[in-house]
Design a binder for these strands. Structure first.
Length: 511
RNA sequence: GGUCCGUUCGUCUAGUGGUUAGGACGCCGGGUUUUCAUCCCGGUAACAGGGGUUCGACUCCCCUACGGACUGCCA
């Protein structure tokens, strides 16, 4: 069996959206499962749609996701170049083969003439609206022009395209790993442009030539390519490569969380979640589209969430490392129908990964944000706090909000909590606690010791736990939630603890 | 309009002729906790509709409906 080689082939027309990332991921998982190669090929045959920075964005995104490329522009490889605009000569050579064996022909119709043809066909309510053997007789091409006319036009430098000559009435059976067999008659296909007037191939030609030349064994791509699969199969046959044809798998689409249709760039802003892995700034408009990374997602969580949109492992465990995914991934088990993206579940995945992450690693990720808000904070302190608040976080970006009281004295007190927890006799109770804590020697100011002392005090005076501890929490944190109260005291220290109690007593007045 | 693909709880899905139709997210309820969160327990909720085939259909076939993709000198 040939070594598995798959490719992810985006075109650099803008940021990669999560559907594209999932396609890359499935390719990657498949390749690694069979110890194969994952190739990144840039499909930039449409110069008019080239967007500055998109290529780099794609590579950065894959890197962030942990999808490593085996062969590509940066990585090199024996099958380069990996950028289609640098392969022009190759396509010229191969289109000539098709021209020579009658599988392709010249056409000289202008865009206006093509528009007119389609419009006419539509008005006639014809079921045929394509450039094919039924309509090409009325157009300007090798079939309607003499050989001399054709060569004269070409020599005169007239623009032309090269179209595929779809064979007549041929039943084509294509096989898709996910969908099974699909049957189409060639009469339904149109004579697609293979080679454009700008001297570059279209996707159809380029992808067949490159996949063949690069030894691609499996083509895993989006469902939008399924309708052109028969054309691609015909192309392989015309080149005489049918025995080296890759296998195909067409992935279901990612749909909008609400309503209908496939997920689009705009949905993110509209519904408040990112559709891009990394933040993207449009070079033309300056418009910024948010990214998962910037929104506080962990790449491992992001990838895990994406992988399960359309595929499920055998057992019920949904939290999977990349290694586990590689081990369990089965392309034939990919769901056929489109998957609606769920921001809620994405959040849940992220939380799971944050909780699972070792505190030192988490602290390292949190450091830049903490530095910004609370400059000079020690990383070991962040590590300690992270351990205490992580199960209250959904995103990395939640940390500073959730843990602010570990870094600064509360400036205000949540009114709702004040109303609920602050009673008539609270100031007096807290004063007593203040005095109790004041006498605790510095070296004994630990969570465990404090808890024992305060609890002993409460019991001795026959007080109610909630009536003491809830307001104590309020003065220490400014709010009603958070980690173990005595852990907070130990973390902020004796001086700060006393200060906060004093401040609270002075500032909180029940309204 | 034409071609192709699809349709199981609100969402992601398991299921390949005989199941109390399973799990996860969400939601609701209970427990643990000084609080919030975590955690644990429980609950809610689905085979698009109609015809076949079969002793028996979520599973196979046909039709309809609905959804989607494609229909570019874009990928």
């Amino acid at each position: 069996m040939r070594k598995v080689r798959v490719r992810f082939a985006p075109s650099p027309t803008g940021p990669l959206h999560i559907g594209g990332v999932r396609t890359a991921l499935y390719n990657y998982l498949f390749a690694k499962k069979y110890n194969g190669d994952f190739i990144l090929r840039i499909e930039d045959t449409d110069q008019t749609r080239y967007v500055e920075g998109a290529e780099d964005y794609i590579m950065q995104s894959l890197k962030w996701c942990g999808i490593s490329v085996d062969e590509g522009i940066n990585e090199g490889g024996k099958y380069g170049p990996y950028k289609q605009s640098e392969r022009k000569d190759i396509y010229k050579k191969y289109i000539q083969i098709l021209l020579d064996n009658g599988s392709a022909y010249y056409a000289f119709d202008t865009p206006e003439e093509l528009d007119a043809m389609r419009k006419r066909l539509e008005e006639e309510k014809s079921s045929v609206r394509q450039y094919n053997r039924f309509t090409r007789g009325q157009m300007k091409n090798s079939f309607t022009l003499s050989e001399k006319e054709v060569s004269d036009k070409i020599n005169a430098g007239e623009p032309y395209v090269i179209r595929f000559n779809i064979p007549e009435n041929e039943n084509i059976t294509v096989k898709d790993i996910i969908r099974g067999e699909v049957n189409v008659n060639s009469s339904q296909l149109d004579d697609k442009v293979l080679f454009k007037s700008d001297g570059l191939p279209t996707y159809h030609l380029a992808n067949i030539v490159d996949d063949y030349l690069m030894g691609i064994t499996h083509v895993i791509r989006g469902e939008e390519w399924l309708p052109s699969l028969p054309l691609h199969v015909l192309l392989y046959k015309s080149f005489g490569w049918e025995n080296n044809m890759p296998e195909f798998a067409h992935l279901p689409l990612l749909l909008k969380p609400d309503g209908k249709g496939k997920l689009s760039k705009r949905d993110g802003d509209r519904l408040g979640f990112p559709v891009f892995p990394l933040e993207w700034k449009d070079p033309e408009t300056g418009e910024i589209a948010s990214g998962y990374r910037e929104n506080g997602y962990l790449p491992e969580a992001f990838i895990n969430m994406l992988a399960l949109l359309g595929w499920t492992p055998e057992d019920d465990n949904e939290i999977l490392s990349v290694e586990q995914m590689i081990k369990e991934f089965d392309i034939s088990k990919v769901h056929k129908a489109g998957a609606r993206f769920s921001p809620e579940k994405a959040k849940w995945f992220n939380k799971q990964y944050i909780i699972k992450m070792p505190n030192d690693k988490l602290a390292a990720l949190l450091l830049p944000e903490v530095e910004k808000k609370f400059p000079g904070t020690d990383i070991l302190y962040i590590e300690k706090v992270a351990g205490m608040v992580k199960e209250r976080m959904n995103f990395l970006s939640d940390f500073c909000d959730q843990a602010s009281f570990f870094f600064e004295t509360p400036e205000s007190y949540n009114p709702k909590v004040v109303k609920k927890r602050w009673k008539e006799d609270t100031p007096e109770t807290l004063s007593n606690i203040f005095n109790l804590l004041k006498d605790v020697p510095l070296h004994k100011f630990t969570s465990e010791y404090l808890e024992n002392s305060v609890k002993a005090y409460i019991e001795k005076n026959e007080l109610n736990f909630g009536k003491v501890l809830n307001p104590l929490r309020l003065v220490l944190t400014g709010t009603g939630g958070g980690p173990h109260l005595f852990d907070i005291m130990e973390a902020v220290g004796k001086e700060e603890t006393l200060l906060r109690i004093e401040k609270g007593i002075n500032e909180i007045k029940k309204t």
